[in-house]
């Protein structure tokens, strides 16, 4: 299933997470996966201008379809923010922003 998803090149219009897909914001420490879509549109409390900006910000720092992610660390209050391994680099972000990234979890 992973393999199949990784072929996916174009961003998909995904309104709600389909089966097997979760938002990066719902992932827990130790979870690994692959980015399937970066589309912050319609997530809680994010306006449309803001979501377009957030999409580009996420893309520029390397959250792009096909990138491998792993949750490395969680903050000590409310498990927020999270530190993520993103391909070869490490990125810290809040769960609020992480809602815009959809991933498939891969087996351990």
């Amino acid at each position: 299933m992973n393999v199949q998803w990784r072929q996916l090149d174009q961003p998909q219009e995904i309104a709600a997470p389909a089966a097997g897909l979760i938002r990066l914001s719902d992932a827990r420490r130790g979870d690994r996966g692959v980015v399937i879509a970066v589309s912050p549109a319609g997530i809680n409390g994010v306006g449309s201008a803001e979501s377009e900006e957030l999409e580009r910000r996420l893309l520029e720092i390397g959250f792009v379809e096909g990138a491998k992610v792993e949750i490395l660390h969680e903050g000590f209050i409310g498990r927020d923010p999270i530190a993520v391994r993103l391909d070869d680099m490490r990125v810290a972000l809040r769960r609020r922003e992480a809602q815009g990234v959809l991933i498939t979890l891969s087996a351990e």
Binding site: G45, I61, A83, M89, R90, V91, A92, L93, R94
Partner: peptide, 12 residues
């Protein structure tokens, strides 16, 4: 207003 995004690289 809402909080602003916090996205930051953690350098090696």
């Amino acid at each position: 207003g809402a909080a602003e995004p916090f996205i930051m690289e953690l350098p090696a």
